[in-house]
Nucleic acid binder design. Sequence first.
DNA 1: CGCCCGGTTGACAGATATCAAGCGTCGTGG
DNA 2: CCACGACGCTTGATATCTGTCAACCGGGCG
Lengths: 239, 239
Amino acid sequence: MPCMKESSKPIKQDCNTCSLSKLCLPLSLTTEETSALENIIKKQQTVKRGDYLFHYKDPFKFIYAIRSGSFKTCHSNSEGLETISGFYISGELLGFDAIHGKQYPDAAIALETSSVCQIPFDDLTLLGETIPKLHRQIIDLMSQKMSNKQIVNPNASAMARLAHFLLTLSARFQRRGYSPREFSLSMSRAEMGTFLGIATETVSRLFSKLQTDKIVESHHRQVILQDMRQLQILSCEDE
Amino acid sequence: MPCMKESSKPIKQDCNTCSLSKLCLPLSLTTEETSALENIIKKQQTVKRGDYLFHYKDPFKFIYAIRSGSFKTCHSNSEGLETISGFYISGELLGFDAIHGKQYPDAAIALETSSVCQIPFDDLTLLGETIPKLHRQIIDLMSQKMSNKQIVNPNASAMARLAHFLLTLSARFQRRGYSPREFSLSMSRAEMGTFLGIATETVSRLFSKLQTDKIVESHHRQVILQDMRQLQILSCEDE
DNA sequence: CGCCCGGTTGACAGATATCAAGCGTCGTGG
DNA sequence: CCACGACGCTTGATATCTGTCAACCGGGCG
């Protein structure tokens, strides 16, 4: 059955062999419990760059686990100005903030062609009643998201914000087995600026400065953190 | 048994009659289930202005429910500069972000004499295994906290940040049955500034401007929101 | 009564936004 | 395969917001 369209393929997931399972819901579950979890994950979905995974105020049905690729979550205000509330990469989960209000408080847009597991939350909750560890695992993952808060320190200087942002990304890549020193940014300078609360031009100037100071080497969206220690220092200054 | 010291009194809580129960864990529970919950809440604790409810990196044992008063959560960096990550008032819960890391990522300090219920998290989780609704309720409350994120939009102007802050506080007071138009701020101008990422002097100037524009009347920490509509407009501008 | 601290107001400086121009890169289509 | 166009990125000049420094005011508390 070649050429099957992945975007609507109701395939069974294989969480037990997924390289990201230790970051995801199966973390604390046994192989059997994980299999039960797989059964409720109806399909794998592929979204292309610029596509919406969900829109602002869409009714909440699914938690999404990112298998590959990356997303930004954002909402545009009445004047059409966009604010970006966060970036999400593989192994991260999207949608927890929609549970209470029963709708997504932000839209999620793919930054590149990405693949996600769509997890029906009602089924997940139901399964949690027979596997209490699953509920406990959800709570733990939500707590992790709350403590690893992707927040921009409003007291920090533009440079401190950017340095902190790069270090945060670095740590996230490292957890996924990628190099913490060398990685590719999936967002534009403008998107970084919107998220960090600084102008695109300033972001660009800061990258130039990091380059001349031999702290970060950057070519297009490829970056190499040459001096993590110095970056660490910069991320704390001017708070 | 008169004059018993409340701070160490192992009294049984009475969640069923607590006026804040509809904002707290008992929300979706039956009277019987709530009674089971009451039994694990070991004691009520009173903390005075400036006292720490918990310190940064304290081992995580308890979720705290604020019965009365208010808190700030903050962490000080290596240079001794304090950043405030949020403010918490009665009916709100503290500590969810400590579950994953098993320690509190921020300290919590009372802004005024306050009273809290101390909820042992291990017992709570255990109880959740017999009352799945309780787990579901915890997840819902955590989601609520994630969506009502007390975040400062780093793209917003100083005025927009302050206006947004006042409106957020107003809405939180309203949910608790207090007036959304007239309330008392429990934090100093300096603390507001630290949280919002603006200088104390700027906060003061902004209050003066709101006063002359007849949008907010303020006397010391008592504020009256005279023109909520205009405040709403200000909170969106310059983003 | 006087000190102290939080708050207010003013003058000035500096960081960053804005406006503007130019450049490089990538993708498209001939 | 090459040329073109568009977009993202970079760099420069100027404007503006907000931080910093400083002085002063006023209430609360000892």
